[in-house]
Design a protein around this nucleic acid. Structure first.
Lengths: 242, 242
DNA sequence: TGAAGTTGTCTGTGATATTAGACAACTTCA
DNA sequence: TGAAGTTGTCTAATATCACAGACAACTTCA
């Protein structure tokens, strides 16, 4: 704190916000706990109260804290709200939260369809599939690792396309598929195995959310089968039932 | 580029500066090469020329570029030339480049000598050691993080002395050691882990130079064992073989 | 020598950041 | 009920950011 650096090109409120966020991340203020009052924060950061308020507003917009009038400002559970709708795009969800989405190709293989995958994708058992393993991050924090299966006959250049665009949406667009939607999503949870713990930067024994999904085209024909593991401590799925 | 985000808390000129710095770091503009003119940069970044000038001024102050009136702005050799000689003093090397050296104590612990450390320092295995972790900067840019081990019996007050002086040379001088030299230096490279990336202000996946060194006194007796990680994009080791 | 292209400097304008102070609205707790 | 402490909102003054335009000073090259 209090290390003034006037020409850094970063506004003062942003520095204060980063400072508070760092303290939260380091456990200085546990989730649910009340932050010091705005006046106290202003004093400890040697800054005007309004500047603290702007910093807190930025953190609140990102969902890290929640202000309660007359009572105080509290640390929120730092989970990304991840709505499960028929139109589910990782980049849109993360971007809407003011975070920077990033995708990273881990590997790609050709596999034969198991009975389960064949049923889901509407292909014969043993049909050639392409499996793409990817890691997705928000603001450098890994959110999920996942595998996506698709027909190798229909998308023979899937690996190259995904490597080039880093996006399933764009991959499908190259094949003339302008729109697709999530047909079904199943959710469960488990303990991270060693590999997932490493990739998701989780401690051992931490829970992961396991999501199985099926994407279909406009006519309802299966396109992608997805199996992903989410870092439970960073994500909160939101299901809006009408 | 051109992704306007007015409420990010980062000034526009800083974003432009970061963008140009990134292009330089990725080899878009090799060292010694002329940058596009200010007018062209302003157009490509969709920004006023004065904003570009401010960005370039910030980069020039850090020594990344050099403006020549009437001619253009040129990319400087961004890496600190770091000669590896028998007499290697961080402050002298950095100071010689017209930069301001700074040292910062991160932590200090007492440890027992591993087999490797014991062999290097000429002590029995399990001998008490003091380990000092420090961060070194030039003009506020972090250059390296490193650990230094020394005998806890010979330098029991090492932590206090280093905290007071921020310099190994002065620490040793307090123990009557007026001169010492580097006996051996081994260099390799790796990818920065999360901790080092944060401390060195590096992007994820950027390389670090790993240096293992042994300092000895005038008679050749071991004094310090050193293991440091350098931000490869800011340092260039120079070995003069005669 | 002269034209074209470059960086350096000046004036001005509007928007935003930061500070300061005051008070309202609300919660908590004795 | 009332006092103390909290967040929310308002006005205002100053400094900095960003844009705009013009011209000077300098380099390069035909």
């Amino acid at each position: 704190m209090s290390t003034l650096q006037p020409d850094s090109g970063v506004t003062l409120w942003r520095k204060v916000a980063d400072s508070i966020e760092r303290e939260i991340a380091q456990g200085g203020y546990p989730a649910g706990e009340k932050l010091p009052g705005e006046v106290e924060l202003a004093q400890s950061h040697r800054v005007n109260r309004h500047t603290v308020r702007r910093a807190l507003a930025a953190l609140a917009e990102r969902g890290l804290v929640r202000a309660e009038r007359g009572s105080g400002t509290y640390v929120e559970t730092a989970r990304i709200a991840y709505p499960l709708r028929s139109r589910t795009r990782f980049s849109e969800i993360v971007g809407a939260g003011g975070r920077e989405p990033r995708g990273q190709l881990l590997s790609a293989h050709r596999e034969e369809a198991t009975r389960e995958l064949a049923r889901e994708l509407g292909l014969p058992v043993g049909a050639p599939l392409i499996r793409i393993d990817g890691l997705r991050l928000a603001d450098r924090a890994p959110i999920c690792v996942g595998s996506t299966w698709m027909s190798a006959e229909r998308f023979p250049d899937a690996e190259e396309l995904y490597r080039r665009f880093g996006s399933m949406t764009k991959l499908l667009a190259q094949h003339g598929i302008r729109d697709y939607r999530r047909a079904s999503t199943r959710i469960t949870a488990a303990i991270a195995d060693a590999g997932d713990a490493a990739r998701l930067d989780l401690g051992i024994g931490r829970p992961v959310l396991i999501v199985e999904g099926l994407d279909v085209d406009a006519k309802g024909a299966p396109l992608l089968s997805i199996r992903a593991r989410f870092a439970a401590e960073r994500v909160q799925f939101v299901v809006d039932t009408e």
